[in-house]
């Protein structure tokens, strides 16, 4: 991997994360800074993701950079059988930075090995999506005023949810207590429990989404329980309404509690939660632009004053 790229949240040390939060704060105060004047950024979306692409392209535009790229691989030469390596090397002739999303796992890592142009991974299959994790961590920092010693509850699909796995990795530097709330079929993999054990991080597992766990939490991180994840549809029918957050469940929660969700949501957060000041998921998405501005400047080695 070339040194500057961001492929996985595990590439970041605690100091890196804190530094990026500092930069994101500067962008939040003043998002329009022409730091990418004269630079060309490629957004290569081999798999469509409008939300992520708009967020990155907003970040580049607010930095005064130019954008080339595609938003759907069916319009590119990779659909004609060109290898990823050839596409990346071709684009490397034109761009100063490549932001890429791909349906294959490990694509961004491989891309970073075949070019000297920095790569930002905007999602590789079910594997990594580090800018999402940075915006999650930035949101936690903003709402809590700190990252250390927080009680973080993760709810829903903890087995396949990559945002959950990356958030565990990213927050592991800050002595959290994790509460994992999931149905039996979608509980957190042993791999992540072993990771927590090794790092001396406390965690608890539940199948019930109870008041007890809600009332302890500083952060509730909701994810979607998808029907297609279940091998046993009877099991899905049993649990599909168990992991829905409703406003009346928050009556005994801490004042500083904030509810996060990587979006898009389907029905896992009832609409009556939206008016609750503890709902944070819409502002969370706004933080994505600042977090991505920070990441872009960081990989390009641009100092933000």
């Amino acid at each position: 991997m070339n040194k500057k790229s961001l492929v996985s949240i595990a590439d970041y040390s605690k100091e890196d994360i804190l530094r990026l939060i500092g930069i994101a704060e500067k962008f939040e105060k003043n998002p329009n800074r022409r730091l990418l004047e004269g630079k060309v950024c490629a957004t290569l979306f081999f798999e469509p993701s409008t939300r992520t692409r708009l967020s990155f392209e907003t970040a580049v535009n607010r930095l005064g950079g130019r954008i080339i790229g595609f938003s759907d691989a069916s319009t590119t030469s990779s659909s004609k059988g060109e290898t990823l390596k050839d596409t990346i090397m071709m684009v490397s002739n034109y761009a100063d930075l490549i932001i890429m999303r791909h349906y294959l796992e490990g694509a961004a890592c491989y891309a970073s090995e075949v070019t000297n142009v920095p790569i930002i991974n905007a999602g590789d299959g079910a594997n990594q999506h580090p800018s999402q994790t940075m915006l999650d961590i930035y949101s936690i920092f903003k709402t809590q005023g700190r990252l250390e010693n927080l009680e973080i509850t993760m709810v829903g699909d903890l087995k396949y949810g990559r945002t959950v796995h990356s958030l565990i990795t990213g927050m592991s530097h800050f002595n959290p207590v994790f509460h994992f709330v999931a149905p039996e079929e979608l509980k957190i993999p042993d791999l992540y429990k072993n990771f927590c054990d090794k790092k001396g991080i406390k965690y608890y597992e539940y199948t019930d989404f109870s008041d007890e766990v809600i009332n302890r939490s500083d952060i509730i991180y909701m994810t979607r329980v998808q029907r297609e994840r279940f091998t046993d549809l009877m099991e899905y029918e049993k649990v599909k309404n168990v992991y829905i957050l409703r406003n009346n469940m928050l009556s005994g929660s801490k004042d500083n509690l904030r509810i996060l969700h990587p979006l898009p949501r389907v029905n896992e957060i009832a609409y009556d939660v939206d008016c609750n000041p503890k709902a944070y998921y819409i502002e969370q998405a706004r933080n994505g632009v600042f977090a991505r501005q920070a990441i872009i400047c960081d990989v390009l080695g641009i100092e933000v004053k």
């Binding site: 290898t83 390596k85 791909h102 294959l104 796992e105 490990g106 491989y110 299959g125 079910a126």
Partner: peptide, 10 residues
């Protein structure tokens, strides 16, 4: 099967 190594000559 969704690994890049199973889909690129590498």
């Amino acid at each position: 099967p969704k690994c890049i190594t199973n889909n690129e000559p590498m």
